[in-house]
Design a protein around this nucleic acid. Structure first.
Length: 203
DNA sequence: ATGACGATTTACT
DNA sequence: GTAAATCGTCATA
């Protein structure tokens, strides 16, 4: 069977398209031969590069932190924020420093390890589906749970440790909501651009 | 060298 | 709803 890992061609397309099509895909962190964590992507945000005031590369900004945004589509851009969290992005497009922030996952594999990473050891509370959807529903939370950190910054998403797979889920267009991006009030009008994509999977 | 701030989360009132 | 936690990054000097 052919690999279900998304190829570089998937990422090297317009960023908004990639952001929307990532919904329903499976983010996988294969820690070692026997340890695998994964979750379905349910929320993303597009960051449109040098002309997007909300983007870290606005006006061509090129510092050590954002260096990996200048890699080719299909690499990871991970950065440290608020002194305690990481955010995970996939680099997109063709030779433009654009990216998609992964904002939320529903954990599907390695849930116990994910919960341990999130320091939520209460197994009873994990039995409820409601709690499960709240385990990784934020960019900092999903990095903490999935064990994503600066060691993954700049890594290729077509290698065997951290990657995104096809899944059997195909979100209906009607189930996808576009919203303003979160936490970018400094960006003026761009804060209202509808570049956040959210999918509420059927129960 | 300095200071303001951040693509967040959590706890608390 | 408001505020604290916590520190690397960035612009200014």
């Amino acid at each position: 069977m052919a690999s279900r890992i998304l190829s570089t061609e998937f990422y090297r397309r317009p960023t908004e398209i990639v952001a929307e099509e990532l919904l329903g895909k499976l983010l996988v962190h294969q820690v070692d031969a026997t340890t695998r964590m994964a979750g379905i992507i349910t929320e993303t945000e597009a960051y449109l590069g040098t002309n997007d005031p909300a983007c870290h590369t606005f006006r061509g900004r090129r510092t050590s932190r954002v260096a990996s945004m200048y890699l080719l589509g299909g690499h990871a851009y991970v950065y440290f924020i608020y002194g305690m969290y990481f955010c995970f992005n996939v680099v997109t497009a063709h030779h433009e420093p654009e990216a998609v922030l992964i904002r939320a996952l529903i954990p599907t594999e390695g849930v116990d390890l994910i919960a341990r990473n999130r320091k939520q050891r209460d197994r009873v509370s994990l039995r409820s589906g409601q709690k499960l959807t709240r385990l990784l529903n934020g960019p900092g939370k999903l990095c903490q749970g999935m064990g994503i950190n600066l060691t993954h910054n700049g890594c290729s998403l077509t290698e065997q440790e951290l990657y995104i797979e096809e899944s059997s889920l195909a979100p209906l267009k009607e189930a996808i909501v576009t919203l303003p991006r979160v936490g970018v009030g400094y960006a003026g009008d761009a804060a209202f651009w509808p570049l956040r994509f959210q999918w509420c999977p059927p129960v």
